[in-house]
Design a binder for these strands. Structure first.
Length: 465
RNA sequence: GGCCUGGUAGCCAAGUGGCAAGGCAGCGGUCUGCAAAACCGUUAUGCGCCGGUUCAAAUCCGGCCCAGGCCUCCA
């Protein structure tokens, strides 16, 4: 049984999909007006964990991630550079997709762009006009929250508290109620579409309703995003979607907490952000970034620091060294208890993640297994079959974690001979020669370790340990 | 001001009534020709503070302090 914390009810609930064995997932994606920073990626890592764990649990996942490629910032950006909106947003979309790959984020089934779904949005807005939930005013269309009594429910917003004030946009004072939000904006900038609603462009919130319903249906299972999206974005999505269809829009809303820097939210407006590229330029392992963002519970604020990143880097490096070392357990007598130990670790892993993605508990299960196995290795009792079982388990859980380096590692014939030579030198107590050989390997980024199973080697990433 | 989070070791981080997981770093030891790795021991008689409930509290209740977020574009 998998349980998730549902923002809608403020409780952990058992996950019951609409269609047995399936999961429809809409995960809020980027606005492609600039490079994403790692605070943004925290959300995408959380969504990746959710996606992968549902699949690990046997669900067939259908996932959509929207690409917001038309809004005030993207329009301002392309006007400033005098390039087309598409040219401008393509640049940042490409960068985003590259970053996703570097962080080993699973690609959603659909990555719909807002600009490619204008007809869907127009038809949704028309439906809201027909049903009387929306009204037109000077070429723009607004959603009337007065017509939707449960507005504000998820966010726990008391509507009487939202007052008209200095922060209300100039183009918005034609609204009947300051709290109403735009479904369609009148032509103002260089970017517009000619539609049945007139010349203009969509409001921000409508794209998510239109695109999620197109790919996932009018009701679907899970919708995610950062906590800052709860209000007003997700609240507005609920209002416009449910008003249009008369059906419950989403069953489970999941929101992740922010990444902090020095105790403050990382954001573009505060200027306290790092992009993935900034970090990689400093020589950090991208897998460590993934691990760091993954290793804290998604609903807790995570304070980012280079110290924490360094720690994550060490953990990832040790973890991979352990994984590599399993290949050398070729002569052990075998250990009957290993299968039960693996079973225990698997149980801890799934019990943890099934409890609202409690990653710490899940990882602890694996680390406990590693310790048990290391003891067996140091006693020389771990057999090849055991090692294979453990490898299989690590690879299985790595479908969720994705922190292992699984590429084939091979030594050249020359290197293999050199290792044999060194082993003979050690038998002959020619330690000068054996140390020299070890140094030769070291200069090639390969560390030799003498163990009960013979000489073991591992590769070391440049700059790490 | 309203609403919502969080405060657990040097750092990161689980734990929501019954002996305080796990990771990283440090220190001491074992092993090793020397290393490396690993293992063993050690690092919170205490979980922001003060009260209360209870046989028993990090956990429940009340009050307070601190930090962050949302209420406006945001992951």
């Amino acid at each position: 049984m998998i349980r998730f914390y549902n923002t809608l009810t403020r409780n952990k609930e058992e996950f019951k999909p609409i269609k047995e064995g399936n999961a429809g997932l809409y995960t809020c994606g980027p606005t492609v007006y600039d490079l994403a920073h790692i605070g943004n990626f925290r959300a995408y890592i959380f969504e990746d964990l959710l996606h992968r764990y549902l699949e690990y649990g046997g669900y067939k996942v259908l996932r959509v991630m929207n690409i917001t490629d038309v809004d005030d910032k993207t329009i301002a950006g392309c006007e400033k550079e005098s390039v087309s909106l598409k040219e401008y947003t393509d640049r940042y979309l490409t960068a985003f997709l590259e970053d996703m790959e570097i962080l080993r984020l699973k690609k959603p089934d659909y990555l719909p762009r807002a600009t490619e779904h204008i007809p869907e949005m127009v038809s949704l807005v028309k439906k809201l006009l027909d049903k009387g939930y929306a009204y037109e005013k000077d070429g723009a269309v607004y959603f009337s929250i007065a017509k939707f009594p449960s507005y504000g429910k998820m966010a726990g917003i008391d509507l009487s508290e939202i007052k008209s004030g200095a922060r209300v946009d100039v183009d918005e004072y034609e609204k009947e109620d300051v709290r109403d939000f735009a479904l369609w904006k009148e032509e103002k900038e260089s970017v517009f579409w000619d539609t049945e609603l007139g010349r203009g462009r969509p409001g921000w919130h409508i794209e998510c309703s239109a695109m999620s319903m197109k790919y996932l249906g009018e009701s679907f299972d899970i919708h995610t995003g950062g906590v800052d999206n709860i209000f007003p974005h997700h609240e507005n999505e609920i209002a416009q979607s449910e008003a249009a269809t008369g059906k419950k829009f989403v069953n489970y809303w999941m929101h992740c907490a922010h990444l902090l820097v020095n105790g403050e939210k990382m954001s573009k407006s505060k200027g306290n952000f790092y992009t993935l590229r900034d970090i990689l330029k400093k020589g950090y392992n991208p897998v460590a970034v993934r691990y760091l963002l993954l290793s804290a519970h998604y609903r807790d604020p995570l304070n980012f620091s280079e110290k924490a990143l360094k720690q994550a880097e060490n953990t990832v490096s040790n973890y991979n060294a352990f994984y590599q070392s399993l290949d050398f357990c070729k002569s052990g007598i075998g250990n009957k208890e290993i299968k039960a130990d693996i079973e225990k670790a698997r149980k801890d892993f799934t019990a943890g993640l099934s409890d609202d993605l409690n990653i710490s508990a899940a990882l602890a299960g694996i680390f406990n297994l590693i310790k048990t196995v290391n003891i067996a290795v140091s006693e020389g009792t771990l057999g090849p079959e055991d090692a294979g079982d453990i490898k299989g388990f690590l690879e299985e859980t790595d479908n969720v974690l994705v922190i292992l380096d699984k590429e084939e590692r091979k030594l050249s014939g020359e290197q293999q001979n050199l290792i044999k030579e060194r082993e003979q030198a050690r038998k002959d107590k020619d330690f000068k020669k054996s140390d020299e050989i070890r140094d030769v390997f070291k200069s090639q980024g390969i560390l030799l370790e003498d163990t009960l199973y013979g000489t073991r080697w591992k590769t070391v990433k440049k700059g790490i340990k």
